[in-house]
Design a protein around this nucleic acid. Structure first.
Lengths: 180, 180
DNA sequence: GACGGTTGAGTTGATATCAACCTAAATGGG
DNA sequence: CCCATTTAGGTTGATATCAACTCAACCGTC
């Protein structure tokens, strides 16, 4: 137990992070809390929606496409707060299985026109009552502040800065450290 | 516009999901809200933690391992509300880069003993002040109910049924359809 | 109408996520 | 001691997620 008092000062002193900090992060980190909640909810919805052949993400995506007119990719990506390239990837299996169609916008041939197929609509129709049931169950189990308060908080943290992944006009404005 | 009145009743009638339902899901679905918030927060923390060489998930994982005694995998998976097999995958790059060590529990050779290396601890030490800064900023920007209320809601939806992915004792009790 | 900047998407590579399936170690009866 | 059961993890295959990079179409200026 009684180590010699001298030690190598040239070696980096053994770093430590107090265990209290660990507890603090565990109990307060909103990012961690959000990831946990997102995982848990994703699992529950994935399981419930399995008879409809959809995952929670596919359900949300198809639902976002259920509108009178075809939509472009960026509005959809923004609605789901997901990266543009993630949307591209997410559409692949849905297009392969014939649930969505990707057309080209005649007015701007770079743009896409995303739309549901009959099959996609049918899957959605099967999924909606399942969603209603599970969502009602979950809302009912929420403590006092209630579902709407939770949604408000989630919206607040989801709003945030714009998604990038699009070549910025003038990358680092001047300082090397952008987030100082 | 005036189609003939007769049509194939054997063909599925063109399904529709009212646009109002789409708006309802978009505005109320807790799963969608959670995914959006999780994505947005993950992006912000990933970006902020980049100087520490960690993603938000790696930060949370390393932090979960910062304790006096090595931990098994299941407690960690449960703490993070992630699948057991996801944890296995998440540990791989961290072990490869020498931030964590996976030992074998001598008392039960099936079990693992997860622990931080000095390098992992050092990365954590770099990350903590970054986390504090960003987390404070985010908390400060939250509307009225406040951070603690949001966390309470997130805990409530994250609690939920246990994680499975472990051979159930008596799988489908009798009926073929488990989730009827 | 050609050039330069801008904008919309796809691709690649790395990691994350989980269901289904598999192996090995511990455990409890007989 | 042996076998059946349970329990701890790993593996595989599919999808999700995003940064960095690339290509192509638009758009304005001269």
């Amino acid at each position: 137990m009684s180590k010699p008092v001298f030690f190598e000062t040239t070696m980096p002193v053994e770093t430590t992070v107090p265990f209290g900090t660990t507890l603090e992060v565990r109990d307060t980190c909103l990012c961690l809390h959000a990831q946990r909640a997102a995982r848990a909810l994703a699992r529950r919805f994935d399981e419930a929606l399995r008879p409809a052949g959809l995952t929670n993400g596919q359900f949300s995506l198809l639902m976002a496409l259920n509108r009178p007119e075809p939509v472009g990719m960026q509005p959809v990506a923004q609605l789901l707060a997901m990266d543009r390239t993630t949307l591209t990837a997410a559409l692949k299996p849905l297009a392969r299985d014939g649930l969505v169609e990707l057309g080209i916008d005649p007015a701007d041939r770079r743009g896409r026109r995303l739309s549901l197929t009959g099959k996609g609509l049918a899957a959605l129709a099967v999924a909606v009552p399942i969603w209603r049931g599970l969502h009602g169950t979950i809302e009912a189990a929420l403590p006092p502040p209630g579902a709407e308060a939770l949604r408000a908080g989630l919206r607040a943290v989801a709003a945030e800065p714009q998604l990038r992944n699009t070549a910025p006009s003038t990358p680092p404005p001047a300082s090397i450290h952008s987030g100082l």
